[in-house]
Amino acid sequence: MIGEKMADHSTSTMSVRDCRIQVMRGGSGSPMLFLHGGGGLGIWLPCMARLAKKFDVIAPEHPGFGASDTPEWLDNIGDLANFYLDFLDQLDLRGVHLVGSSLGGWVAAELAVRNSTRLASLTLVGAAGIHVKDVPQVDTFLSNEQQRIRDLFYDQDLAEAVIASSERPELEDAALKNRMTTAKLSWQPRSHDPNLRKWLHRIKVPTLLLWGANDLLFPQEYAFVYQQLIPESQAVVLPECGHLPQVEKGDEFAAELEAFIDNQKIAA
């Protein structure tokens, strides 16, 4: 089982300009760049293994997170968006299916607004980046670690399993680093940039808003507001699913993503 998982991807370090980052990569086909959320890169997920059968799945660990460098220049989400434009240039990736979860979704939206010439499609998953009025959201910075994990999932048995696996001292440094960078990037204005929504119309690639129906961090109203703001976009809401569909509903998540990308090919 582990050997099989190991075989379908590799983990390596690369430098983009002055910044060394860790990258998981596996599969072949069109490139699919997966941008993680504030919790960090995490593991090579079963859905990534499935998607790697059709795509060249690339999952970098953002600057400021985990094993990647924390560069002096990292101050805001725009810095990460520009960093990933450099990343795409350096790897000379074209026809990229860009997927971003949570804070990574915000980065992806900012990137696509700036320059989508290397993109074939955009998928935002439980994405931060905009603010929707009068939608209650949990304050992840005031919750303790266990509550924070419980709030991520619809399935509370899964939450308990994640809590159990997260309580390992060797993970503490990375977890603190991730929290610190997440605060730096998203504390104020909380998890959004008031300027982003003004320019989302510039995203010219087909866009999927893929959300968990029970997302407590960025509830599904966010998907529908994003849908109104991005011209060629559609929203899909997965039932009985929290903030991380790629973890909680990996198969449905991969299936929706595959169907969305297949439809673009037919349309083309």
């Binding site: 910075f141 005031l142 919750s143 303790n144 929290r179 610190m180 997440t182 605060a183 730096k184 504390w187």
Partner: peptide
């Protein structure tokens, strides 16, 4: 106060 309030990240 809870730890998260006293010591926010960063």
């Amino acid at each position: 106060m809870p730890t998260e309030m006293l010591l926010p990240p960063g």
